[in-house]
């Protein structure tokens, strides 16, 4: 009887927890998506036949936190795309609310900075809610099976010179060595993603 009760409480607690928190958790498999990039082409994870994982980064033009990380995101892709862990950047914002995040300005920014990775527009804002992204930048590292292995920050310092913990790189390196990232969840300040009412 006691066991049954404990089991019941656990199920109820779990149900309450899953309904409260939205979006993918570590261990969840991610659905496919296809979004238009600044090269005017559609991009999907399936485009990468040899991928051993995917570094999905929700980012944008207008947010100073995103801008502070641009060079680091480029460096990440340059380091990890050749190792079959490509960066896929997605702008989740509604361009009507932030004109600097519209498709034209995404193209301009990608060109200015020389983005070496796809920079995609979450047209209609359907993809970011599935991930449960709440801000930019917000990172989701997936393994070869598109299962989430790490969620959170790129590193532990907005100011690049102050970085002492490279969370994302450590997580990718863990996957490359057949290990689970630790930590697999970190937090950072970011610009909240805006949706039209």
């Amino acid at each position: 009887m006691n066991k049954l009760l404990i089991g019941l409480v656990a199920v109820i607690t779990l149900a309450a927890w899953t309904t409260k928190t939205q979006g993918y958790k570590v261990g969840d498999k991610v659905d496919s998506f296809s979004l238009k990039g600044v090269d005017n082409k559609m991009h999907a994870m399936e485009d990468y036949a040899d991928a051993k994982g995917y570094i999905i980064i929700f980012t944008c033009n207008h947010c100073p936190y995103s801008v502070a990380y641009e060079d680091r995101i480029i460096a990440l892709n340059n380091k990890y795309a050749p190792l079959n862990y490509p960066v896929i950047a997605i702008n989740p914002n509604d361009p009507d609310l932030y004109p600097s995040d519209n498709f034209k300005n995404m193209k301009i920014r990608a060109k200015e900075k020389g983005f070496t990775f796809p920079y995609l527009m979450d047209e209609g804002q359907h993809v970011y809610p599935k991930f449960g992204a709440t801000k930019t930048p917000h990172v989701f590292l997936l393994d070869a099976n598109k299962v989430v292995q790490y969620i959170g920050a790129i590193d532990n310092s907005t100011d690049a010179s102050g970085v002492t913990k490279k969370y994302l790189e450590n997580a990718v390196d863990a996957l490359r060595n057949g290990k689970k990232p630790n930590p697999n969840y970190t937090k950072a300040i970011g610009c909240s993603i805006k949706t039209k009412k």
């Binding site: 532990n156 937090k187 950072a188 300040i189």
Partner: peptide, 16 residues
């Protein structure tokens, strides 16, 4: 921030 966000509130994702 990754080291202090939880000290404000553990439910905070870090978005403002």
């Amino acid at each position: 921030a990754s080291e202090w966000i939880d000290k404000i509130d553990s439910s905070w994702s870090g978005a403002i």
